[in-house]
Design a protein around this nucleic acid. Structure first.
Lengths: 236, 236
DNA sequence: TGCGCGGTTTGCGTCAGGACAACGTTCCGG
DNA sequence: CCGGAACGTTGTCCTGACGCAAACCGCGCA
């Protein structure tokens, strides 16, 4: 009675090196859980009693500053491992994960981590790579925040979103989950007002196409040029 | 003929779980190298052919943006492992490490990493924790850059420096290596002009004490209050 | 059908902090 | 001992982006 079938994790990079029997063994300890839109998978500060792999949907990971400011740390896409706090020797989750759309995740108790990594060292190596690439992303973001104008940062954010959760449609690339201007603002360290202004301007130029919690990139190439700082910030 | 003696790594957390014989085995593959002030340990973009543990001194890790802007990513203190690019599946170093003062580091060829982690799993676990805490730090910095004023960011930066490389002297806590206003600017995402102004103001209030490539915190407690955003940014 | 709420747009005033520039100071090498 | 370079200070100006506030829009719901 394996509660989780192998087929659902066929494309999860974390398990790439494992054979069918090993995979079953790992999955035997997991539970599959469904998270309705806007429900939290875990909360910042809560005890880190589990880690997860996202099967379906999209999560928004956010942190709140001591002063109450919210920041969107990143979005989680299917196939990713997340909530690995205890592997980093953290007792509590450092951030909150919220389902941006109805989502499904596999869930292991934290206690399983030491046992699984001991038995399957490739898991530890893969986790190290995942955390490493997350560190790369975060450092890239520090560099953006330190050296770029708001417009460039917004452009970068949109491109990144499109890359990891873009869906091709006739008129361009659509972000595959509901995302508000507020969310974009929290990703780029600015205010929703400024984001709204920028997107309105771009919409008039035909660069993007907006809507309620919806963003479509009509001209990613030009957007990229903007992000790179070429195009001196389209006057008037 | 072990080129490196056990005693020099007595306080390196990475090797905490290893016995004397195991330690010798690990150290047998290492070389100890001396880096004069201002020399580079490795360069951003260079092939990641080695990883390191700092024994003595301080390193400045910096990244250069495509547009040529430099950012100080962090400072490395004795006992830390660094340059673990290949463990994160990176072919090239993502940043440059420069000796802020004359420094000494242990150096292993990258090829040794898979072998050592296979034999001593605690190394992989420790590395995961190290990278994890680095990720925490970087995300904290993103939050600062996103939500705080320049003054608060500078205060935070000074406190962090003092914490990891502070030396108690009569008048307060001194940063233990030469650091210019430019460096502080590159840590906080601002310009050396602004940093200079801020530090001058603080010096007049007796909060800090400056000098050429030198910073002393005279009142860390008040500085902390400033960093937290209490004290509404000392008018006039 | 009308109401209300969450999300969005936009105008306007303000100001923190960046750009530019000139000058002072300390340190080092010849 | 002198000259220059690197580092730091300070003044002035200017603008990008934030704060506030008001209006708007579309969607879901009663």
């Amino acid at each position: 009675m394996p509660p989780v079938d192998r087929s659902v994790v066929a494309d999860v990079a974390l398990f790439a090196g494992l054979g069918p029997a090993e995979l079953d063994e790992v999955l035997r300890e997991a539970r599959s859980i469904r998270y309705p839109k806007d429900s939290a998978v875990f909360h910042q500060g809560a005890e880190a009693d589990a880690f997860f792999v996202l099967l379906h949907g999209h999560l928004r990971v956010e942190k709140t500053t001591p002063q109450g400011q919210q920041i969107v740390v990143r979005y989680v896409s299917p196939g990713e491992i997340f909530g690995v706090a205890q592997a980093l020797a953290l007792k509590h989750y450092p951030a909150t994960a919220v389902a941006a759309v109805e989502s499904i995740a596999l869930c292991w108790p934290s206690a399983a981590w030491p046992r699984l990594t001991a038995k399957f060292p490739s898991l530890a190596a893969k986790a190290l790579q995942t955390v490493g690439s997350r560190l790369q992303d975060t450092q890239a973001r520090v560099m953006e925040l330190s050296s770029e104008q708001v417009k460039q940062r917004v452009a970068h954010a949109l491109l990144r979103l499109a890359k990891q959760a873009g869906r091709r449609i006739e008129t361009g690339v659509e972000i595959d989950f509901p995302i508000s201007r507020q969310d974009v603002a929290e990703m780029t360290g600015t205010t929703l007002h400024t984001v709204s202004r920028i997107l309105s301007a771009w919409e008039q130029q035909g660069l993007v196409e907006g809507g309620r919690q919806r963003i479509v990139l009509r001209d990613p190439h030009k957007l990229f040029a903007l992000a790179e700082g070429r195009i001196p910030s389209a006057r008037s």
